[in-house]
Design a protein around this nucleic acid. Structure first.
Ligand SMILES: Nc1ncnc2c1ncn2[C@@H]1O[C@H](COP(=O)(O)OP(=O)(O)OP(=O)(O)O)[C@@H](O)[C@H]1O
Length: 960
DNA sequence: TAATTTATGTTTTTT
DNA sequence: ACATAAATTA
């Protein structure tokens, strides 16, 4: 059978340029393979020809970037050459280096039993050693693990550029000397040098920890190989003798270190064939250096250069339009692709909103599919799936169009994995209410939401945990008997597992939990549709096994590890469902693929090119060894995004549809400059059909209404049908309706956090201070004494955070006391309540402090313990408006001034709302109350709000 | 034209 | 929260 295939494939057609590239015998060869010009065919054929011409297969080395690319190349050569192909070395740069190091490492004095660390393991190692350094400059701000991520990215980039930690340290020391020589007190330069030193020290520490462990990271594999080959000429010549013919795929994506490695390998025989397309270089952010392909001819003047320009994929119009985009880049190898066919249509449209754009894309796809196009032959390419994918997926789902999100599955975000995590978290800590709530709602128990509310409310009332209440379900009024029994049963399973958890490894407990919980069995019983979830659970077990092997730690650490993987967005990939539907993916993921029809959506100027985003820690340009440093970062960024746009366009065979949305903001969004290039070229821009109300929203309305009557039992509703809410309830709903549902209706308790404890502490200390001592007796010492007492009484502890906060708080309180003694305002009321009527609703509020000012007017003060808000936040804030109305209508006090007092910064921000603003506030309150009554609990995923939310594990919006 | 205010949008991925 | 691009003002 093989022979038969070989016979067919051996006569593969090649055009003239392809043939030249394939037949070229020895010496350097640069194949500039434009998009769709048959690069794959040429590489495979070239390998075949080398073998036919008598080159021994084991002398051939073909290097790729991804395992996938290596696998495909191996498969093709196997098909052509049969068993002979087995001896050809086809692999990634990294796998090649790893093998060389294992084979020859001993000779070079290296440990051949080194391990290669995954990204997550790199995090574990660095994180556990970082406190040895006592870094001060880079505070852990933003995302948790932000510092570790930033450092590891920087180390990885440094290795791409062959910069060692020693060089980094030396560079930092040099800068320090310069600074000192200059004398003077330049704070900014001092800060910069300080940062440099800290990064350098962390880099040195990281590499030391790795080598002590006998471990290498990915960049380390390349560097160690280069070092081995340079330091040991004997090994180098053996390797050179072995690999006499070397091919490198996607050469435009090689980084500096990889190019050095290739140079080292081919220096003697010069039989190096590199294939790539400078116009498709889109991985600069991970070290790809387009310079390698641009300078190949300078490095190898004798090289044969073959340009493949006959495009076998796209119709003429597509190629012409894409050329009008990419040709605007300077510093590119000029090439003009020619089309084989004329069957191509390029269109563009603009929509009013993202939803409308998505709707238009979906309805055009519907038409295409009806007219006979295979869904799998249609792709939707986005700059960012994370940011832009939701609307598109929703539109496709709404119309029942089958689709696959390519490469989108992250293990830690899959619903079934999150269910399993909930089990594990409860096993680790039965008082974890959020996890317990998820566990009870999930299979196999599948507690009805209303029953969960009953349990949870009873837990609140009886001051017990959800777990304890589930243990004694008969106490819960109104609970369905059967439900109660199932909940009770599950607590037994959890207790047994918990009893075991601290005696066994993470791997074992994960395995047991999946089985004993009945979760896996429940899935398995669902049949084929559960194949993907089951695979993901198996993957979770695999992760636990790997973790156990690496850390020898228990369940708690494993759970932290999984949280870290999620927070740092490390790509532990889950299994992806494949339905053969419309292919939704990033433009990056589309590289190398082709489709009959391509939609490029979300093409606003702010999305592509968007703004340049410098990495958190940039490698100093002076350390780079190539003369690459781009003079203009913005220009380099736009050029890269232009190439990305070009890559996306050239994926289409026959139809290309580009679109963007104006958006609902005050300023209409602008079209991407690349889309504008297309329009200037002659592509027609039309207007999307506006969404008709029935199109987008056919789902969900009914179930929400039917559920409406049931949740009413858990809301505080008065006789005339209005709601009774506290200001904080209102604020919660406005932040995220789903958060409101989980915290106020399901009554899942929030998680205690140091910030929260600090906040309540400061509030109560201030109340006590003012109530207990008149101005004559007041002093900072008195206040500090009360603070200290309260601190002790609450046992807040003295960790780093605690000490830091304490210092800040005392500084702030000193200012507070001074201010208090200086002014003549008389604090008159403390923690004073009101209950304000707004329409049919009642809104409760509590004002921290009310002062009578010297002129006789009143000032309402609310303490804030945290960073001072910016103007905008204060302007748009609702709280003081509510207080102003409350004071006026309930206490008959018209305050002359309302203030936020930011205690830690000792700053007061004051305002007074005018009637118009108060009316707006009333409207907002009514709107929120209506939303609650109509059971609108749509999650609102905000950039900030999700980060501080206590309910991310139960939140349905976070399930993939 | 330069300075200031206001609105906007928060990636991409492999080893 | 924060940086940055665009719009507005001096
Ligand atoms: N000589 C040829 N005659 C006919 N078809 C060809 C020839 N060479 C290549 N093709 C076809 O051209 C198409 C594009 O080839 P391939 O996917 O290898 O492109 P590519 O160069 O890798 O493109 P890109 O860089 O855009 O991914 C394939 O369908 C391939 O079969």
């Amino acid at each position: 059978m093989l022979a038969c295939r070989m016979g067919n494939m051996a006569k593969i057609e090649l055009n003239e340029a392809q043939r030249r590239a394939v037949e070229h015998s020895s010496g350097p060869l640069l194949i500039i393979a434009g998009a769709g010009t048959g690069k794959t065919r040429v590489i495979t054929q070239r390998i075949v020809r080398l073998v036919e011409k008598g080159v021994s297969p084991e002398n051939i080395l073909a290097l790729t970037f991804s395992n996938k690319a290596a696998g495909e190349m191996a498969e093709r050569t196997e098909r052509m050459l049969g068993a002979k192909a087995d001896d050809i070395w086809i692999g990634t740069f990294h796998s090649f280096c790893a093998e060389l190091l294992r084979d020859h490492g001993l000779l070079a004095g290296l440990d051949p039993f080194f391990t290669v660390l995954t990204e997550a393991q790199q995090h574990l190692l660095l994180e556990s050693h970082l406190d040895e350094l006592e870094l001060r400059r880079y505070a852990l701000k933003g995302r948790a693990n932000g510092l570790v991520t930033a450092l590891l990215t920087a180390f990885s980039r440094a290795k791409d550029e062959m910069i060692t930690s020693q060089e980094y340290l030396r560079f930092a020391a040099g800068k320090r000397d310069e600074l000192e020589a200059a004398g003077g007190a330049d704070d900014e330069a001092e800060e910069e040098v300080g940062c440099l030193e800290e990064v350098a020290r962390a880099y040195e520490l990281y590499d030391r920890v790795l080598s002590e462990r006998g471990a290498l990271d990915f960049g380390g594999l390349i560097l160690a190989t280069i070092r081995m080959l340079t330091d040991h000429p004997a090994i180098l010549s053996r390797v050179r003798a072995r690999f006499t013919h070397i091919l490198v795929d996607e050469f435009q994506d090689t980084n500096f270190a990889q190019s050095v490695l290739v140079d080292l390998l081919v220096a003697e025989h010069g039989n190096v064939c590199v294939v790539g397309d400078d116009d498709q270089s889109i991985y600069r952010f991970r070290g790809a250096s387009i310079k390698n392909i641009l300078d190949f001819q300078t490095k190898h003047p004798e090289a044969l250069v073959v340009k493949l320009t006959k495009n076998y994929r796209s119709g003429r119009r597509i190629l012409d339009a894409s050329h009008s985009v990419v040709s605007k880049n300077g510093a590119r190898l000029e090439k003009r692709l020619s089309a084989r066919h004329d069957d191509a249509l390029v269109e563009a449209f603009v929509a009013a909103s993202d939803e409308e754009e998505a709707g238009e894309v979906a309805s055009r796809i519907e038409e295409l599919v009806e007219s006979g196009v295979e869904p799998r032959e249609i792709a939707i390419l986005l700059r960012s799936v994370k940011g832009q994918g939701a609307d598109i997926l929703k539109a496709l789902e709404g119309r029942g169009i089958p689709h696959d999100l390519v490469d989108g599955a992250l293990l830690a975000e899959e619903a079934e994995v999150r269910d399993a995590i909930a089990w594990l978290k409860v096993i680790d800590n039965p008082f974890d209410a959020e996890s317990m709530a998820r566990l009870l709602s999930a299979p196999p128990i599948r507690l009805d939401p209303i029953e969960l509310c009953r349990l949870s409310h009873w837990a609140r009332q009886s001051r017990r945990s959800l777990f304890e209440v589930a243990q004694n379900p008969s106490d819960v009024g109104g609970l369905d008997r059967d439900t109660g029994l199932r909940a009770q049963e599950v607590t037994g399973v959890i207790r047994r597992l918990a009893g075991k958890a601290h005696r066994v490894t993470a791997e074992q407990i994960v395995h047991e939990a999946l089985n004993r919980s009945g979760y896996r069995a429940w899935l398995a019983a669902r049949g084929p549709e559960a194949a993907v979830p089951l695979a993901n659970l198996a993957q979770l077990e695999r992760l636990a096994a790997e973790f156990t092997g690496f850390e020898k730690a228990g369940l708690r650490s494993f759970l932290d590890y999984v949280d870290m993987i999620r927070d740092a967005e490390l790509r532990e990939k889950g299994t992806q469902a494949k339905s053969g539907g419309v292919q939704v993916m990033t433009m990056h993921a589309a590289k190398g693929l082709e489709f009959e029809v391509v939609f490029m959506a979300g093409l606003g100027q702010s999305k592509i090119p968007g703004r340049r985003r410098p990495s958190a820690i940039e490698i100093p340009e002076a350390l780079l060894k190539e003369q690459l440093p781009e003079s203009d970062h913005r220009e380099a960024h736009v050029a890269e995004e232009r190439r990305l746009f070009y890559v996306a366009m050239t994926r289409a065979r026959k139809r290309l549809l580009m679109s963007y949305a104006l958006g609902e903001g005050e300023r209409p969004a602008k079209a991407s400059q690349f889309l504008t290039d297309c329009i200037d070229f002659g592509i027609e821009l039309s207007r999307a059909r506006p969404v008709t109300s029935q199109e987008g929203w056919n789902d969900e309305e009914l179930p929400a209404l039917s559920a409406a009557s049931s949740y009413k039992d858990f809301l505080d509703i008065n006789e005339d049908g209005g709601l009774s809410l506290s200001y904080s309830d209102l604020d919660c709903y406005r932040t995220c309706p789903m958060q409101f549902k989980l915290s106020r209706i399901y009554r899942i308790p929030g998680k205690p956090s140091p910030e929260r404890s600090f906040g309540t502490l400061v509030h109560s200390v201030l109340e006590h201070f003012h109530r207990s001592c008149p101005r004559e007796e007041a002093s900072f010492e008195r206040l500090a004494g009360l603070f200290e007492e309260a601190w002790q009484a609450r046992r807040l502890g003295d960790g780093t955070r605690q000490r830091q906060f304490k210092q800040q708080a005392l500084d702030g309180l000193r200012g507070y006391a001074e201010e208090f003694l200086r002014t003549e305002a008389v604090p008159t009321f403390f923690e004073r309540d009101f209950n304000l009527r707004v329409g049919p609703h009642m809104l409760r509020g509590r004002v921290d402090r009310v002062d009578v000012l010297p002129g006789g007017g009143h000032e309402l003060i609310d303490y804030k313990v945290g960073r001072t808000w910016d103007d905008r936040r204060v302007r748009e804030d609702l709280q003081l408006s509510v207080y102003q109305m409350g004071a006026a209508e309930v206490w008959s006090i018209e305050p002359v001034q309302l203030s936020y007092y930011f205690i830690l910064d000792n700053k007061r921000v004051s305002l007074r709302r005018c009637e118009e603003e108060l009316e707006q506030a009333r409207q907002m309150i009514l709107e929120a109350a209506e939303g609650i009554l109509s059971e609108d609990f749509e999650p609102r995923e905000g950039y900030i709000s999700c980060r501080y939310c206590d309910y991310t594990l139960v939140c349905p919006a976070k399930d993939r």
